[in-house]
């Protein structure tokens, strides 16, 4: 058996080791690859840029810790951009394990920009059944959230006193890893007419291009790439930014190249083995003819 024919039998631990090396090395030696921006990410960035101070954006943390690698930088980027532009932010966390993560990200970003809870932002926290919560906000924030995350009644919070429903906010950004993103489009956008943007995992993004092309959403951040583009735009606009997603794109570039190399090598092995099988079958046929 030749070397090429042995390829399909390569131990999977070798593949795992190569994937691990490809993930770790670019973290220590950044490649600094340029990040070109796409229309869907520019859509969200420009929308927030055009909002004046005092406008209100609702950022929904609709993801669990497993996708924090992709959704975390997205949420953090949008939050920071809003704070940078003095846009008021309301935050919900409609995924069971999101409240703790959201709290940490909000408090970190708020401290960085000297934003005051209840005045510049309001963290509403978690309520079960996202679709019902999203629908209820259409009537009044006080139905699903009588109090904020810290137990303060909404009417005692300066920022929330004049806020009743979607009519009082300019945009919803759902940072999601599941079907909740769709509920924001279905109810907040289509039923109550509030503009919606989505920040979703790369795997999910394929599904949400339908909403983007139908202009049902004003922007779409697909996976870590979306987060990196967003940070690159913040950097380009002279705002403070985090370079973690930019470095993450170095890792993703190398990983994608490695997977493509695996596909190529796997196919070389596949064709080599298929050629051997054909040769053996032809030899067997010739042998049978010789015997006759």
């Amino acid at each position: 058996m030749s070397f090429l024919e042995k390829i399909p039998r390569l131990d999977r631990r070798v593949l795992y080791l190569l994937v691990a090396i490809a993930a770790v090395v670019p973290m220590f030696t950044p490649l600094g690859l340029p990040i070109p921006t796409s229309r869907e990410v520019e859509g969200l960035f420009d929308y927030i840029e055009e909002l004046g101070p005092g406008s209100t954006v609702l950022v929904a943390f609709d993801f669990d810790p497993q996708t924090v690698g992709e959704n975390g930088p997205q949420a953090s980027g949008v939050l920071r951009h809003c704070f940078e532009r003095d846009v008021n932010v309301l935050i919900t966390a409609l995924s069971q394990n999101a409240p703790g993560m959201a709290q940490e990200m909000i408090e970190t970003a708020a401290a960085e920009y000297d934003k005051v809870n209840g005045v510049d932002f309001c963290y509403l926290g978690y309520q079960p059944y996202p679709a019902i919560v999203i629908m209820s906000i259409g009537q009044n924030f006080r139905i699903p959230f009588p109090q904020d995350f810290y137990g303060t009644p909404l009417d005692s919070i300066p920022l929330m006193r004049a806020k009743q429903n979607y009519d009082d906010i300019d945009l919803v950004v759902s940072v999601a890893a599941g079907w909740v993103a769709e509920s924001w489009v279905t109810y907040a956008k289509e039923r109550y007419g509030c503009d919606v943007a989505l920040a979703v995992t790369a795997v999910q993004a394929a599904q949400y291009y339908t909403f983007w092309n139908a202009q049902q959403i004003v922007g779409l951040l697909p996976g870590l790439k979306g987060a990196a583009e967003y940070q690159a735009m913040m950097k380009g606009a002279g705002m403070s930014y985090t370079d973690a997603p930019l470095r993450g794109m170095d890792v993703q570039s190398i990983e994608h190249l490695l997977i493509i190399a695996f596909i190529v090598v796997g196919n070389v092995g596949f064709f080599a083995e298929r050629a051997r099988q054909r040769r053996e079958a032809a030899a067997a046929r010739a042998e049978r003819r010789g015997e006759r």
């Binding site: 399909p8 795992y16 924090v68 993560m101 990983e255 997977i259 695996f262 596949f270």
Partner: peptide, 24 residues
């Protein structure tokens, strides 16, 4: 949080292995 993130990260290894073996 790290347990969840680790579980999800493992997908990268399985995808790489699957791409090598099944994407023909």
């Amino acid at each position: 949080l790290p347990i969840y993130a680790t579980m999800f990260s493992l997908l990268a290894f399985y995808i790489a292995s699957a791409a090598f073996r099944a994407f023909k």
